[in-house]
């Protein structure tokens, strides 16, 4: 059973910050979609006296393009992302990750800000956002700052957020049309599944060579991670089968997974290779001119 709480529902960011200020010394929690928080309250891991609900702050629920940047309010839901034309054209890997997250019910509640702030190593939206080199706009009653998503996580459930600070928005440079990406995940089942492992990649090919590439993994370390060693290896190279195989080998050394109730350390390590290889091969197959594709 849930313990009764005082429920606060601000409608603007200013009001939200005032409420946070007001409850500074109280036991409060910020409620986004609630798909993680409410479960933890039910399990009595969290027992707040106050809930500050963000769902009526309209400013936080916007998807916008601002001067070649994609700007996503923290309260944008997975369902909203999936239905966004702008994102399906420019951030397909984020859309793909949202499509594989939870169930329709969860996707209509779960928010991008919540998924990030929850800091689960298996949070599905984080690897694509890392691959898109996203940054976070953080705000507290006393200051605002922008940080790279990659520097946000400290460990499972742990972030650099101050106690009175929250994520206001997520932003990244709008990918150019010639960028390509992939998102792959393995779970215990085909839907409604927490990832055993996920991988996202975003790259720019120039004359058949990778001008740059960003690769990120979920559920293979204590936080979602960028695979910098793999990126460094691939930069400037053609994605030939031999190069892809070598990159996949490096990936195995990059990750540091654990065994838990969903999978094992060794399986996750192997899959970090397999999924990266499949992701890259998929891109090459899609990039090949018609007729060149081997069937």
């Amino acid at each position: 059973m849930l313990k009764p709480v005082d429920y606060l529902s601000p409608t603007t960011i200013d009001e939200l910050l005032r409420l946070i200020e007001l409850h500074r010394d109280k036991d409060y929690k910020v409620l986004a979609g609630g798909t993680d928080l409410i479960v933890r309250m039910k399990e009595k891991i969290e027992k707040p006296d106050f809930l500050i609900d963000l769902s009526h702050v309209e400013e936080l629920a916007r998807i916008e393009e601002r001067a070649n940047m994609i700007y996503l309010g923290a309260m944008v839901t997975c369902a909203h992302i999936i239905s966004s034309k702008l994102l399906s054209q420019s951030a397909a890997i984020l859309v793909a990750a949202c499509q594989r997250l939870g169930s329709p019910q969860i996707r209509s509640r779960a928010t991008l800000g919540g998924n990030i702030a929850n800091a689960s190593p298996a949070g599905d939206t984080v690897p694509p956002l890392l691959a898109l080199d996203a940054s976070l706009e953080l705000q507290s009653p006393s200051r605002s700052r922008t940080v790279a998503l990659e520097s946000f996580f400290r460990g499972p459930g742990e972030t650099i957020l101050d106690p009175d600070e929250l994520i206001i928005a997520i932003q990244f440079s709008k990918p150019t049309p010639d960028e390509k990406g992939f998102f792959l995940k393995l779970g215990q089942r085909s839907a409604m599944s927490i990832s055993k492992i996920s991988v996202a990649g975003q790259l720019h090919l120039n004359m058949g060579r990778t001008a740059w590439i960003r690769i990120a993994y979920g559920a293979v370390a204590s936080t979602p991670i960028r695979a910098h060693a793999v990126e460094d290896f691939l930069r400037g190279k053609s994605l030939t089968p031999a190069i892809i195989t070598e990159a996949a080998e490096i990936a195995q050394q990059t990750v540091s997974p654990i065994t838990d109730i969903r999978s094992t350390e060794s399986y996750r390590r192997k899959m970090s290779s397999i999924l990266l290889r499949r992701g890259l091969e998929g891109l090459m197959a899609a990039a090949a001119p018609p007729g060149a594709r081997s069937s």
């Binding site: 479960v39 085909s190 839907a191 109730i261």
Partner: peptide, 16 residues
Amino acid sequence: FLTDNFSTYTLPTAAD
């Protein structure tokens, strides 16, 4: 029990 609900004890979905 390490699995005591349908979050940890995974059942197949229609997609499976």
